[in-house]
Amino acid sequence: MTQTDLPLPLYQHIASHTIQQLEPAWLQLEKGSERIIQVGGAWQYYCQQMPQAGQQASDVFDVLIAMLPISESFELPQVQLQDGKYTDIFGLCEPHHDWLLFCDVTQNTLNIQQYHQISNDFILLKAQMKQTLHRYIGHEVSERIAQGEMQLDAAGERKTIATLFVDIRGFTPFNERHDAQMVMQTLNDYMNGMLPAILQHHGMVDKIMGDGVMAVFGVLPSENHCCLDAFHSAKQIIQAIYTLNQHRLSSGLEQLGIGVGIASGEAVLGILGSHERRAFTAIGRHVNLAARLESNARVGEILIDKTVHQTLGQSHAFTAVTLTLKGIGQSDVFSRILPCIHGDD
């Protein structure tokens, strides 16, 4: 619609209403220069001292520095002024003169800002949540959850999984001998070795208990059998700790060893907890077995149950052993020891 399509009284009404809202103020400039020729409008709204003919426009308004002379028409939307007001600034290139027009858009901008604020807060919150998920279940899966391609269901799904426990040997006496800050740093170093090895093999960190970690395999999608993922993860964890111990040895620090237990079986997966605090967990008989295996494992030892051994087959050089496990009794399990501490290998 153009001006001529509207009956004159309506056009005049709209123009009057709009002009009243916009509080326009303008400068007429010498063509190709920033020298002010004429001044008009509600300048008191935009600055304390009214611009004068003969002044340079950018001397009056800092915002115009580097914007003048006007070589082509432009629009600067929502320029924030010192007193918190917002103005749209138009630079108009005409044949004989150039023009600068200021229009107040404070109310409209503040209204839109509320929506922007909510939207940007949401973006930041979503990024924080994604990062938290990323730490527990790895980048790939957290991305899929964020995109809505996958969800962790609280319904209590039954699934065959492998559960891995890993723990630092002799950590309690180490803890007693050293300052708490040093213990915290050591733990962080160990976790930096352990956790990526779990995430890279599609494991999910279920719990971190001081110096110990419980991880489950088979919950997150993987091309491999959950027992194979858990075993590869265990090997990589021990290798990472072996490398870390090398650094500690060269820095004159005490080496620490780890032991691993893996068992497999059916578990119920789900979200456990109250409405205020919930955590994903796996519950099954084999979980307790895996914990017992880990507590019996020596430095660098991976102990696995029969189910895991059957799945892995004979090619992984495990030795059959019989152990008496607390609360379980005599059990036939399988052992493999890998180098973990320098000097023992």
Binding site: Q80, Y86, D121
Partner: peptide
């Protein structure tokens, strides 16, 4: 406190 910027704010 995070406050979303609208348009442009000019400082020197």
């Amino acid at each position: 406190k995070y406050l979303s910027t609208m348009g442009v704010k000019i400082d020197k």
